[in-house]
Design a protein around this nucleic acid. Structure first.
Lengths: 133, 133
DNA sequence: AGTACTAATGTTATGCTATGATATATTAAC
DNA sequence: GTTAATATATCATAGCATAACATTAGTACT
């Protein structure tokens, strides 16, 4: 990981937890899990998350109010950060698709909009869960 | 509007308000504006919103925790419901893009995922605000 | 009309999510 | 070592959302 050694104690605790879990956690769940490390208030979590998100090591899932470690922290830049979220098993998969990204960028040009952040979250049923129907 | 006459009193109050405002409102803002109509509790708003969203007359903006009237309620089905949100003027524009939708669907097929809801919200600076820089 | 069913409403209470404000401590730069 | 910037700790508060339960209103059928 590129900037792991730059992280502070709290930031590293939060990132380590999110890397250990494979799924997304809410800020308050993170708080509870890190009480053993001395965390006592939501702000400790939110401030660490803020930095980790800025570094691209963690993403926020807007539709879940939850946070997940980036699955490709080695990448300097994603073309587009996007997620599929299974409603049954709650599994979350991050994906990166240059074609979709190009489509979006092109559309933004046609409507004359300067995009800064793009949120793409797709909720549905994953392959594993679908085969159980 | 297709199903306007089916709506109940509370649902109609909420929809009318959202149609009058051009922007997105939080549930609690809606509650405050509708106190004059007799609204007293958040649940009255949330329940009306739930129905309106199910009917496709209102959309939820996940990145804002806010709600906005659909700008194309006459459409039975959108190919993809997507928004651009200006960080400066807070203006919100709904858009519909078949190419993006097709490529998302295509990607979902390749990863074997059954999509139900797709959230696409793009935050940045709109043309009007950008020209002031 | 009366019964049964379904959907919507009203209300209280509660829980989850997020940030403001202030003071202290730590780190980096000069 | 002083300064400046960043991170931390803590308390308080604001904002968002739903559980649970009681009541009312509308619909369908006999």
């Amino acid at each position: 990981m590129l900037c792991y050694d730059i992280l502070t104690r709290n930031q590293r605790h939060v990132l380590d937890l999110l890397l250990a879990e494979k799924t997304a956690l809410s800020a308050y769940t993170i708080l509870d899990r890190l009480r053993i490390k001395g965390f006592r208030a939501p702000l400790q979590v939110y401030r660490a998350l803020e930095k980790l998100i800025k570094l691209g090591l963690v993403h926020r899932l807007e539709s879940l109010n939850a946070f997940i470690a980036c699955s490709r922290p080695e990448c300097e830049e994603h073309s587009l950060i996007a997620f599929v979220i299974c409603r049954k098993c709650s599994n979350i998969i991050e994906f990166d698709n240059g074609v979709i990204d190009d489509n979006v960028k092109k559309h933004m040009q046609t409507i004359n909009f300067w995009p800064q952040d793009t949120i793409l979250e797709i909720r549905g049923i994953c392959a594993g869960c679908h085969s159980f129907v």
